[in-house]
Simulated assay, not measured.
Amino acid sequence: MTSLAVIYYSSTGNVHQLADAAATAGKKAGADVRLRRVAELFPPDTVAGNPAWAGHLAATRDVAEAALEDLEWADALLFGTPTRFGLPAAQLKQFLDTTVTLSLAGKLVNKVVASFTSTAATHSGQESTLLALNNTFYHWGSIIVPTGAVDPVLATPDNGNPYGVSSVSRGRPAGAAPDNLAAIEVQARRVIDIAAALKRGSAAG
C-alpha cells in the first residue's frame, strides 16, 4: 500500500478544506493516509482577535500535529499553505526548517511531493508560494509532481496554475469552490499513482 501524508497550515479553513479533500481522495485511491496540521505559532491573543481564525483553530484541535516521523513514513507528501506576501505561511515554513536532520540523512530522497495553496485574490502570489515550497523539495532530493494540465478541471480559472492546485476566497461563498475540491482530488491521485509506480519499480529492481 502506498502511504500519503497531507501536511498543511490553515488559518481560517480554506486550506484545511483542500487538505481534507486530498486525504479523502487518497483513501478512495487505496492509499494509507495521514492528515496532519502544523503547529500554530502566533500568540493566542492575536488569534483570538480574529473570530474566524480562532474558530477554525478550535474546530481542528483534534487533527494531529505533523511530526518528522510522518515524513519518514510517507511515500508521497502533499503540503498545503495559504500565501503570505507571495510566500508559504511561517507556520509551515517553521516545520519545514526542522527537517534538516532527515534531509542530511537522505531520508527524504525520492519522496514524491506536491503542494497546494489558497489566496484571497487571484494575483496574490499563488505561483510564487508553490515555487518557494519547491526550493525545499529540491534540497531534499524529492520528486516534485506538478499538476500541469493532466485533467480538464485543472485548466479552469478557479484552479490557478500548473504548479499546484490553488483556491481563491475573496468574493466567493465560504470554503473552497467545487472545482477546487475536484482539482485537489486529481492532484492527490496523481501523486499517489506516481509514488506507487516508483515503489513497484524499486521492488522489481
Rank of each mutant, 00 (worst) to 15 (best):
G164F: 12
N110K: 13
K28V: 08
R37V: 06
I143T: 14
K107Y: 00
S202F: 05
T129S: 12
L130R: 01
P178E: 13
G49E: 01
A31W: 00
L71T: 02
E69G: 15
A21Q: 15
A188N: 11
R34W: 05
T98E: 07
V112R: 12
T136F: 12
A76F: 08
F42K: 05
T101V: 07
Q126R: 08
V109W: 08
A177T: 07
A22H: 09
P82M: 13
V109S: 10
A177I: 05
T122Q: 13
R37I: 05
L18S: 10
R36N: 11
S167Q: 13
R170C: 03
T24Q: 14
T60R: 11
P82C: 14
K93E: 01
T119Q: 06
A59L: 02
L92F: 01
A105N: 07
V33F: 13
W73D: 12
N14I: 13
S11R: 15
N161A: 11
D75P: 13
T99E: 00
L154M: 13
V109P: 01
L4M: 12
A183D: 12
L181F: 10
G148Q: 15
Q94F: 10
A52V: 00
G125D: 06
A52N: 03
R172L: 11
A203H: 15
H139M: 11
R200H: 01
R36M: 11
Q187S: 10
L102K: 14
G171A: 07
H123F: 09
V38D: 09
N180E: 09
L41S: 08
A19I: 09
L154E: 10
T2E: 05
I192D: 12
T12A: 14
G86H: 03
L71S: 03
D97Q: 06
A174G: 08
T99S: 00
E69S: 14
D193P: 13
R84I: 09
H139R: 15
A64K: 09
P43A: 11
Q17N: 03
A155K: 02
V47E: 07
F116S: 01
T147W: 09
G205V: 01
K27Q: 15
E72K: 15
R34C: 03
A155D: 03
L71D: 02
R84Y: 14
E185V: 02
D62C: 04
G171R: 11
A66N: 12
T101C: 03
G125S: 09
W73I: 10
R190E: 12
L41A: 08
G26F: 08
A114D: 01
D151Y: 01
A19W: 14
A52E: 03
T117C: 09
K27Y: 05
L133Y: 01
A203C: 07
L71K: 03
V150A: 07
V191S: 04
G201V: 00
N135Y: 11
F85K: 00
W73S: 13
V165G: 04
R36Q: 11
T129W: 10
D70V: 02
V153C: 01
L154I: 07
F42P: 00
L35Q: 06
A66I: 10
T122A: 15
S202L: 06
D97N: 06
L57T: 09
V100W: 06
D62Q: 07
S167L: 08
A64W: 04
A59W: 04
I194C: 00
N159V: 11
A176D: 08
A176Q: 12
P43D: 12
A54M: 06
F79I: 05
S167C: 15
D179P: 01
E40C: 03
L78T: 05
T117Y: 06
G80L: 15
T81C: 14
A114S: 14
E40G: 02
